[in-house]
Simulated assay, not measured.
Amino acid sequence: MELGYIGIAYNGPIKGVMSDNDRCSISLLLCQSPPRPPQCSTRLTVCVENHSQALALNSGNPILKTYDLVAVKPLDQNALDDACDKSEIDIIAIDFSERLPFRLKQTKVKAAIEVCFFNGFHFIGFVDKKFLEC
């Protein structure tokens, strides 16, 4: 691609309790145009406010299986701790353009980097805020 990207992810953010309506319905037709289409993925960003929402982020969740990537945006310290320690996610999304509602502890960040499959942390602050709306 012209800007050096090899892939893009279409994001679907949710806040609150997950339901069948949150299954991936993103069409990747735009990624099939020649001559060299980018690698396209679907991404779900879940805004987590409490422990019970964090527990739903596991490999047995059928809604999460409909997406290529699963990100969590923690909204408090307990949600961040759960994301770092227990959640089966690909990305922890943190918006540094706003005041953080939690503290980033070195031990938790290291644990998240060891557990996360994809990127570990996705730091937002210099991109469009619509990417992480909750």
Rank of each mutant, 00 (worst) to 15 (best):
M1V: 09
F102W: 11
L75Y: 06
G4N: 13
K108S: 04
V46F: 09
S27N: 12
V72G: 05
C24W: 09
D85T: 07
E98K: 13
Q39V: 11
V17T: 12
F118M: 05
G125R: 11
P101D: 10
P101I: 04
I63V: 10
E98C: 10
G125V: 02
S52L: 11
V72I: 14
V46Y: 13
R99E: 15
K105F: 04
K130G: 01
P35I: 03
D128L: 09
K105M: 04
Y5D: 07
P38Y: 06
I92C: 00
N50E: 10
V115Q: 00
D90G: 02
S59H: 14
S87M: 07
I94N: 02
D22S: 08
R43Y: 06
Y10A: 08
P13T: 11
G7P: 14
E2S: 15
P62A: 06
D95F: 00
H51R: 15
V72E: 01
C24K: 09
Y67F: 11
R23K: 14
N11T: 12
L3R: 15
P35D: 02
K130I: 03
A71L: 05
F126C: 07
E49Q: 10
N78I: 14
R99G: 06
L80Q: 03
P13A: 02
A56D: 08
K110P: 03
S97Q: 13
S19K: 11
V48L: 06
D68R: 11
A56K: 14
D76R: 04
I91D: 04
V70P: 10
F126N: 09
L29A: 11
H122G: 03
D76Q: 07
F123Q: 04
G12R: 15
C24E: 05
Y67V: 01
K105Q: 09
E2F: 15
G120L: 00
K105N: 09
A83D: 00
I124E: 12
I113Q: 08
N11Y: 06
I91C: 01
F102P: 06
C84W: 01
V70C: 03
F117E: 09
C116T: 11
C24M: 07
S59F: 05
P101L: 04
R23E: 09
S87R: 03
T66S: 08
S25M: 07
A93M: 11
K110V: 08
I94F: 01
F131T: 06
A54F: 02
M1N: 14
D22R: 08
